[in-house]
Amino acid sequence: MSRCSFFIYIILLGLCNFLCHCETSNKVIIRQGGDDLKLTCKVAKGVIYWFKDGEGLNPSSSSDGSGDSISTITRNNLTMKDAGMYQCTDKALTTHNFSVSILTVSGKSQELVANASEAVLECSVENEELEVIEMRWRRGNDLINETDKYLTITNGSSSSLIISNPDENDVGPYVCEVSIEHAENKFEKIVGLNNGPHVKKIVDLRNKVEGETAFIVCNVTGYPVPRVTWFKLLEDETQMQVITYDERVSTEAVEGVADAKLIIRDLKIKTDRGDYTCVATNYLDSFNATVTLKVKDKLAAVWPFLGICAEVIILCSIIFIFEKRRNRRMEEEEGDAVKQDLMKKSNGTSQDVRQRNTVTKA
């Protein structure tokens, strides 16, 4: 359709609306840059025409089960060029108007500075044609209210969040929430108090048994969220090797940090024991921590018990042999004593006989 034909069509459409009270609808749509947009027009059976700011468009068309005509206009990754007045109409001059506005919510993050008195996060709306109703800040799902810790300053289409005496506990994402007049939804922008990663000390795993599962957790803080990589020290203790994941070795996320938990199933002494290093990295810095994993044989707990049993058996054997020898010695000593007593008695009897014989002769 030529531009001249379009203006003639619009004039006729206006006259028809004025004289015939043809059906017309108007809708205001506000989207954020980068979003997707889908406009749908449904009329009685017939051809549907689309226009944007006076220029004809080529929509996709279909028909529903009732025979009505359905036509859609789709725009992906919206930019300011996609803003404007969209119109769909049919031969019966039924018109649907869509006023589309595009806004951009921008933010300015800040890095955590040691011993700083404050940190300032900023947020602003870039579209002077839209009226900002409200701007507020959240941390997670919690709305931030003004306290000794937080102060918000809003001026028209811009807002600042001031954090007093910021420390590592304040590091992370903050959400700037914007309410626009006539907009169905609220718009958000994530602004961060950034800091390099830090990994807490990992306790060594010294009592794992072959066949068990080991869980090694890399407790990471920092924002933007650090990326975690796991390494293992080779047997020559000179090189670190990136751990490859399979059905036996895998990772899980911990508190939003991907790969922060290393899971080793069915532990093996030869391949799994050793030093493991967790390296956390973001655009500001990197940090690492090392943990030692010791894997014992399945019978490791049995050997001490068997040793104790062997010691008891040997001790009992020694005691038994000693007692047996002592009893034998005592029996021999008692036998000797009996013999000596018998000998003494026999000697005493013979002496009496001799004495008697001597007296008789006399």
Rank of each mutant, 00 (worst) to 15 (best):
N17M: 12
F18H: 03
C20A: 07
H21G: 06
H21F: 00
C22P: 00
C22I: 10
C22Y: 06
T24Y: 05
S25V: 11
S25M: 10
S25L: 09
N26R: 14
V28H: 05
V28F: 05
I29W: 01
I29Q: 03
R31M: 08
G34A: 04
G34P: 12
D35W: 15
D36C: 08
D36R: 10
L37Q: 08
K38C: 12
L39N: 07
L39A: 08
L39C: 07
L39T: 05
T40W: 09
C41F: 10
C41H: 09
K42Y: 04
K42C: 13
V43S: 14
K45F: 00
G46P: 01
I48E: 13
I48M: 13
I48G: 10
Y49Q: 08
Y49A: 03
Y49P: 00
F51K: 00
F51G: 00
K52Q: 13
D53I: 05
G54R: 02
E55S: 07
G56F: 12
G56W: 12
L57G: 05
L57R: 03
L57F: 12
N58L: 08
N58S: 11
N58M: 07
P59F: 12
S62M: 04
S62E: 08
D64N: 15
D64C: 04
G65P: 05
S66E: 15
S66T: 15
S66C: 06
S66Q: 12
G67Y: 00
D68H: 10
D68L: 06
S69D: 04
I70E: 06
S71L: 07
T72W: 13
I73Q: 11
I73G: 01
R75F: 14
N76K: 15
N77F: 12
L78H: 04
T79G: 11
T79H: 07
T79D: 05
T79I: 05
M80K: 10
G84F: 01
M85D: 14
M85T: 14
M85N: 15
Y86Q: 03
Y86N: 02
C88W: 06
T89R: 11
D90I: 07
K91F: 08
A92D: 14
L93V: 13
L93E: 04
T94D: 08
H96F: 12
N97T: 13
F98K: 01
S99D: 14
S99A: 13
V100E: 00
S101H: 14
S101C: 02
S101P: 01
I102N: 10
I102K: 06
I102F: 11
I102Q: 08
I102E: 08
L103C: 03
L103P: 06
T104Q: 13
V105Q: 03
V105K: 02
S106F: 01
S106H: 01
K108A: 14
K108E: 15
S109D: 15
S109F: 01
Q110P: 03
Q110F: 07
Q110I: 10
E111V: 14
E111F: 10
E111Y: 09
L112G: 03
V113A: 12
A114W: 02
A114F: 09
A116F: 03
A116Q: 11
A116S: 15
S117N: 07
E118F: 13
A119K: 00
V120E: 13
V120Q: 13
C123P: 02
S124G: 03
V125L: 02
E126I: 02
N127K: 04
N127W: 06
